[in-house]
Each structure stands twice: as structure tokens, then as C-alpha cells.
Amino acid sequence: MNDSTTRSILISISYLAALLLIILNLKPIMQGIGSFIEIFDPFLHGMIIAFILNIPCASIENLLQKRLLKGKSKALTRTISIVILYTLFAVLLVLIVSYLIPGLISSMQDLLKNIDVYANNLQSLVDKAASFFGLKNSIDMSAMFSWTAGYTDKMAKMITEFLGHIINLTAEGMSLIARFFFSIIFSVYFLAGKSKLLRQGKAFFSHYMPEKVYEKSSYLYRITIDTFSNYFVGQIVEALILSGLCFVGMLALGIEYPILISALIGITALVPMIGPYIGGLIAFRILVMINPINAILFIIFIIVLQQVEGYVIYPKVVGKRVGLPDIWVLLSIMVGSGLAGATGIIMGVPIGAVIYTLIKKDVNSKPLA
């Protein structure tokens, strides 16, 4: 056995031993990584905020350059666009904290307070329907009541405790405020200095990476950034529009708990295609206890709204920028859900879009035999 073979065997054994040690100590290793990442929480959150706000910031910057600040320096234009963007962000945050969250908590508390009345009314209606159709045994609806009460109570307590920490300025609340404050500062820094940071990143990686590796990494970086930014900004804007339309429609139709249900529809709308339907079914479970007629009316309304969203809102807000066919969207959601739960559902689509784009471009680059 020559030296080269011996060295290869030793390297393979070393890799296997290291992999085995990692697998056997996976939990403490992940805890250590989590503790390390926690130190840089504001930095990472600032990066995420800047990543999400980059597209609206660039849009405001382009608008200012074309209209109000034509011929002015790029640095001035970017500074003003960041000020405008964060002013709008602050106004939105104040509105959410001042109106939306208190209204949400009030709706949840009112629902919990009247849950027994709603439960009795619905059970009575189900019993009458069973009797009308000649069924010997009625359907016991107690499981639905317990699920709705438990879920709503949990959500109300979580929001109330979170607000309590901040309002009462406890140690935990001060820590949350401080982390949020530093995250905003980092996000402003990233947005203001993005051109310089990108230049520095390119210079660093092009210097230390082999040329071919750098070119492939740069290509993957561009596709990933474009896909993720288009997806997240599009989904957030779409969710806000859908939530607003749902709120207005519920008020017009006189359906109960418009704030609570509109917020639920907006949150579930972050999951493409199937999200609003999931939110609609959960809302139906709540409404059917309160007013079955309005619950049926709501389902009809949400189906119509979903058609408007699918054919009008989604193409204009998100369009084909993500570039993933419907069948692969569903597959990405299923795989993401199985691997990482709720986070996987949200992250699965952009990751699937990146993989799909890479494979599609690679296949199309090779001529058919």
C-alpha cells in the first residue's frame, strides 16, 4: 500500500469519525450554535429587515431620482428614501400597536366570554337538524368548542403577555425594546451602505475563492437574492391587501369579529395558494358557532375574494417573478412542512423556486441530442 492510498484512507476515517462525533453530540452542538447566534440577534434581525425593505426602498429611491430629486447625488436620494420608508414603517407600527392589537385582544376576549352561549346555540341547531333528517344520534360539537376556546385563549394570553412586558418596562420588555432598536439601526446601516458592502463582499470572495468557484457562487447568490426578495416582499404586500379587503368586506356584510378574522386571513395568506383557504376554514369554525348563516356567507365571500386574489392581486403584486409553477409550489409546501413545520411552509416556496430555476437554466443551457 503506497503513501497516497494510506493518506486517503486516514483522511476518510478522520471525516467519518468527525461526522460520528457531530451526530452523537448534535443537540449540544445545536444549542451552542443557537447561543452563538443569539449574541448576534440584532445584527441578523437587522439584516433580515433590510433584506425585506430593500425593494420598497429602491422603489422610493428610483421615484425620487426621476421626479423630485432629479440630478441630485445618489447618497442624498438614498438617505431621503430611507427616512421616508422608516417613517412609513413607524406609522404602520404605531397603528398596529394602538388599534389592531387591542382590537384583536378585545375580539378574542369577547369570543371566550361568550363561547358557552355560542356552543349551546350551535349544539341546539345541530340537534334540530339531526331530528329533522331523522337521525337517531346527533353530532357532538364539544371537540370544536374546546379547540376554538383553547386556541383563542392561548393566542390572547401570548399577545397580552408580550404587550405587558413592553408596556410595564420589565427587564424582558427592556431587552426586547433594546434588541428591536439595535436591529433597526443595523437595518438602516445595511440599506444606506449596501453598495459599499456589496463591493467589499465581492472583493473579499473573489480574492480568496478560485475563479470558477466564485463565478458559480456569485450566480447562485444573485438567483437566491432575487427569488427570496421578490417572494417575501410580494407575499407580505399581498397578505396586507387581502387582509384589508377581508376586513372591509366583513364590515359591509355585517359578519362578526372582522379584526380577528381579517388578521387570521392575512397571516395565513403568507402561505401561497392554500394559505387563505386554511385561514378561511379556521375562521369558519369560529363563525359557525356564533352565526351559522354568517359562517356560510363568509365562506362564499372568501371564495370570491380568493378568486380576485388569484387572478388580479397575485399576478400584479407577485406575478411570475418567483418563477415556480403551481404544482411545484404545492410540492415545496409539502416538503417544507414535513422538514421544518410552519417555517418550512414559508421557506419551502422560495427555496423550491431557486432549485427549479437552477435546474431549468442548466437543462436549457445544454442542446438536445
Rank of each mutant, 00 (worst) to 15 (best):
Y189R: 03
A369M: 06
H207T: 15
S81V: 12
N121L: 09
I29Y: 02
L169M: 10
L287C: 09
M47E: 01
I37C: 02
F133D: 08
I265R: 06
I274K: 10
V304E: 04
R67G: 00
K157D: 12
N121G: 07
A130I: 06
T357Q: 11
V117A: 11
F181L: 05
L53M: 12
F247S: 08
R67H: 06
I351M: 13
R78E: 06
P272H: 11
L88C: 15
L176T: 10
M250F: 04
N114P: 00
M108D: 02
I241E: 02
L111R: 09
G352A: 12
I37D: 01
S8Y: 03
G173P: 03
L135I: 08
I236W: 00
W147M: 14
I282V: 15
C57K: 10
A252P: 01
K216E: 12
D153Q: 13
H165T: 07
V91P: 01
A143M: 08
A129G: 04
I351V: 15
F132G: 00
T6A: 14
I290K: 14
G32P: 03
I184S: 05
S73W: 02
H45F: 04
A239D: 02
A369E: 04
F180G: 15
S59R: 14
K136H: 06
K361Y: 01
I300G: 06
A129F: 05
L242V: 12
G338L: 10
D226E: 14
G266N: 03
E215Y: 03
K154D: 06
P28W: 05
E38K: 02
Y311W: 06
M158A: 14
P210R: 14
K157L: 11
Y151P: 00
M47L: 10
L240K: 04
F181W: 02
H165D: 12
I166E: 04
D116A: 14
S107L: 02
V312S: 09
K70I: 05
M347H: 05
K74N: 10
I13S: 07
S12M: 11
